[in-house]
Structure formats: C-alpha cells, structure tokens
C-alpha cells in the first residue's frame, strides 16, 4: 500500500498544528505553511508511529514538503518489504 498525500495530511491534522491541513500545498515548504520546527518534530513522530519506522535526524532536514514526505515514506516502506 502506497503512502498518499492524504495520509501525510491526516498525520499533520492529528498534530493540530495547522487549522486547515487539507489545503496544504504539496510543493511548498511546510515551514512557509505554518509548521515550525517544533511542529515538524510532532509530524515526524506521528508518521514514525503510524508506519513503525525510525526516521533519523540526518534525514529530517530534507523532509520539507508534503511531496517529499510522501516520496520518502514510500521509499522507506519499499525497503522494508
């Protein structure tokens, strides 16, 4: 099963960081859409728990948009199959 943008947006919704997570733009930096570094810690934690993977600190700097998160999660989940 592939991770979709809806999955990532639902994770962001769960953290209650932004009021309107459905309308997040896929290709715009999340920091420019109201999600600061503390919020990103929470988003990453929710995704780690949901997909039962560990996302190392070294990877986080690159995970700046919904699109990049979707691609990254699919790559990681493909590796675990």
């Amino acid at each position: 099963m592939k991770v979709t943008r809806e999955d990532v947006c639902n994770a962001i919704k769960q953290t209650k960081i932004v009021a309107d997570s459905e309308n997040l733009r896929d290709d715009i930096e999340l920091t420019d859409q109201g999600i600061d570094s503390l919020g990103m810690f929470n988003v990453i934690l929710v995704l780690q728990e949901k997909y039962q993977i560990d996302i190392p600190d070294a990877d986080i700097d690159e995970l700046t948009t919904v699109q990049k998160l979707v691609m990254y999660l699919n790559m990681r989940l493909d590796q675990t199959v």
Partner: peptide, 12 residues
C-alpha cells in the same frame, strides 16, 4: 539539548 529527542521522549 537535542530538542527532537527530548520531545519524542516526552510525547511517547
């Protein structure tokens, strides 16, 4: 302080 590690610890 590693803010992410401390946050993850507290949240979980």
């Amino acid at each position: 302080m590693n803010g992410r590690a401390v946050f993850n610890f507290a949240a979980t």
